[in-house]
């Protein structure tokens, strides 16, 4: 592969990189910036890659680091009032799934053949809608955990959260996503 072909191959990753960054950063322009920086870094190092696959792995690793940098930056900023409000409402809505003794107020129903959903394009649209619907903080911790595949300990450290706080946010994110998928996907099938 010539350097020219290689850099074309890397540029061809752009849509996937963008969609990867957009779901996590939740705003098109920071996603655009992160992808731009990752691609630029790859162009500068194009000579050192053995092939397109190695280059792609490298670009994704750079992009992940850019995303984490952005998360770290955001976590140091004071939280907007609107975010705090949204997070509180979200936590309260989750509590309503339980009665005052902590038992199910409405018993969650099993999902029919969830595995088959993974093959459906429309499922992935709903999946992204549900993730985007989570408040910023639980979405960030859940995204770092499951979309970036980081260890919990590392996430807490990056974001300056206590371990138990991380667990609470992950628990809320999971309950929230389950609720959203139940209503918006598995309910209608």
């Amino acid at each position: 592969m010539t350097p020219h072909e290689l850099s074309n191959a890397v540029s061809a990753l752009r849509p996937r990189l963008l969609s990867f960054a957009r779901l996590q950063l939740r705003d098109a322009s920071s996603a655009e910036d992160a992808v731009q920086e990752a691609l630029l870094a790859a162009t500068l190092h194009v000579g050192q890659f053995q092939g397109a696959s190695a280059a792609a792995t490298w670009v994704f690793a750079i992009l992940k680091n850019k995303i984490i940098d952005e998360f770290r930056r955001r976590s140091r900023q004071p939280q907007a009032d609107a975010d705090i409000g949204q997070e509180q409402e979200f936590a309260e809505a989750l509590e309503e799934q339980f009665d005052e003794r902590g038992h199910w107020a409405v018993r969650p129903a099993a999902w029919a053949d969830p595995q088959a959903s993974l093959e459906q394009k429309r499922f992935w649209e709903v999946f992204e809608v549900c993730i985007s619907g989570l408040p910023e903080k639980p979405a960030r911790v859940f995204g770092m955990r499951e979309l970036l595949g980081m260890e919990t300990e590392e996430i807490c450290k990056e974001l300056g959260l206590s371990t138990s706080n991380c667990w609470v946010l992950l628990h809320r994110a999971r309950l929230g996503l389950r609720d959203c998928l139940s209503r918006r996907w598995f309910g209608e099938n």
């Binding site: 061809a12 990753l13 996937r16 990189l17 397109a52 670009v59 992935w124 595949g149």
Partner: peptide
Amino acid sequence: WRERHDQDSTP
């Protein structure tokens, strides 16, 4: 979701 994006990332 992650695999659809970044694994087997060969263009």
